[in-house]
Design a protein around this nucleic acid. Structure first.
Length: 205
DNA sequence: ACTCCGATGGTCT
DNA sequence: GACCATCGGAGTG
C-alpha cells in the first residue's frame, strides 16, 4: 500500500529517456533534482526516492573526477554512453552510485549524494539500521546502502524495467542551491554540487 | 556547535 | 605505499 500512495502522487511511468543523459553533465546534475529514482528488487519490492542532492564530475580534465587522466579499469563505465550506472567502492566500506552522462568516451557522470525516500521504506530502514527517515539516504554511501546498490550494479542501464528515473514536477530555479563539491581535495573551486533548498534530506549543509 | 579519527579495500604510482 | 567523490561515534567547548 506504500507503493499505491506513491503512484497516486507521482507518475512513475513517465520515465526519463536516453537523450536526457546525453546532455551536458552539469545540466543533468541540475535536472536530476526533484526526479524520482526507482529500483525494483527481485522479490518485487519497489524502492523509490526523490533526488535532492547531486554532484557533477566532468570528463578527463576534471582533476576531481575518477575519469581524470583517462580510462582505467575502475572508471570504464564513465566512458560509456550516458544512461548507465557507475558504482564504486568508497574508502573500502561504502558504495556510491553515479549516473553516467554524455556521449561515449567523454568520461563524465553525476554522483547521487542524497535522496528523499518515498517507497520501500521498510527495506531501507532494515538495510540502514535506523528508523530515522532523514538518515536513510543522506549521503552517497547511505543512499547506495538503502537502495542495495553494489558493484553488481556497475554498468546497469537506467533505461531498464528494474531501474529507471522518472520525471516529476519541474523545480523552480529559486530552489536550486549551487555550491562547491564536498569531500574532494583537487578542483575544490568548481561549483558543481547542487541540492534542493530547504530539503531535510541532504547530506550536509 | 565543532574537530578528530578509525574502519577497510581497491586502485594507482 | 599512498590516496581516497564516506560515515558515525567520541571527545571537546
Amino acid at each position: 500500500m506504500e507503493e499505491k500512495k506513491i503512484s497516486e502522487k507521482y507518475n512513475l511511468k513517465d520515465k526519463v529517456d536516453e537523450n536526457f543523459y546525453l546532455q551536458s553533465t552539469e545540466q543533468v546534475a541540475v535536472q536530476l533534482l526533484n526526479k524520482i529514482l526507482v529500483k525494483c528488487e527481485k522479490d518485487g519490492t519497489i524502492l523509490a526516492g526523490k533526488i535532492v542532492e547531486t554532484e557533477a564530475y566532468l570528463g578527463k580534465d576534471d582533476a576531481a573526477s575518477h575519469s581524470f587522466g583517462g580510462e582505467t579499469e575502475r572508471n570504464r563505465p564513465m566512458f560509456e554512453k550516458g544512461g548507465i550506472l557507475y558504482v564504486y567502492r568508497s574508502y573500502g566500506i561504502h558504495h556510491c552510485i553515479n549516473i553516467v552522462t554524455e556521449e561515449k568516451s567523454i568520461g563524465a557522470a553525476v554522483l547521487i549524494r542524497a535522496v528523499e525516500p518515498l517507497a520501500g521504506l521498510v527495506l531501507m530502514k532494515r538495510r540502514r539500521g535506523t528508523d530515522n527517515i532523514h538518515k536513510l539516504c543522506n549521503g552517497p554511501g547511505n543512499t547506495a546502502k538503502a537502495f542495495g546498490f553494489t558493484k553488481d550494479d556497475n554498468f546497469q542501464s537506467l533505461l531498464s524495467e528494474n531501474l529507471f528515473i522518472t520525471n516529476n514536477r519541474i523545480l523552480p530555479k529559486s530552489k536550486i542551491i549551487k555550491t562547491q563539491r564536498v569531500g574532494i581535495s583537487r578542483s575544490r573551486d568548481q561549483m558543481l554540487r547542487f541540492y534542493i533548498k530547504n530539503s531535510k534530506f541532504i547530506s550536509r549543509k
